[in-house]
Amino acid sequence: MAAEERKKEEKGRFIAERRYVDDQRIVEPEKLEAGGVDMSGRWGTLVLPRTIEEFDHSLFEGVKRLPRGGKVGKCWQCGNCTAVCPVAHANPMFNPRYLIHIVRMGYQAEIEKVKDYVYLCSGCGLCSAACPKDVDPQGVMIALSIAFKSGRAKGGR
């Protein structure tokens, strides 16, 4: 884990306002050359824009087909699930409401940023009890956990 943290810190460390830039947006190739000139490292670093340029619902459609993901389309982003979630209260990176939205709209950069946190779900089911639209967020978190690993859900992309 410490090694991971170090790697993260090292990426784009020279950017003046580094803390405002997500890891996922920094492209820092180890080898880059143009016209015989070495441009690796700082001189070749790019920061991708955070503008959303496309809506892509393929992952979302995949989630709908997975076990317990079928009702995800009912979500209207009220936030009841996150409000009652005992994990979200401890870790802001785990947010069922947010996860459902970014998957629905296919915001790839955001998904990359937070997808590993979906495994923090403890399955307590408070969210499913609180959901006014019968989305079963607890089940959806199971479906998302699978979808983020599943070739079928990613197939459309």
């Binding site: 005992p86 994990v87 209260h89 401890a90 870790n91 785990f94 495994y119 923090l120 779900c121 403890s122 399955g123 307590c124 408070l126």
Partner: peptide, 13 residues
């Protein structure tokens, strides 16, 4: 330490 430890609902944990 993962899911359980992050869950703030002791009964469920």
């Amino acid at each position: 330490k993962r899911a359980g430890g992050r869950c703030e609902e002791p009964l469920h944990t």
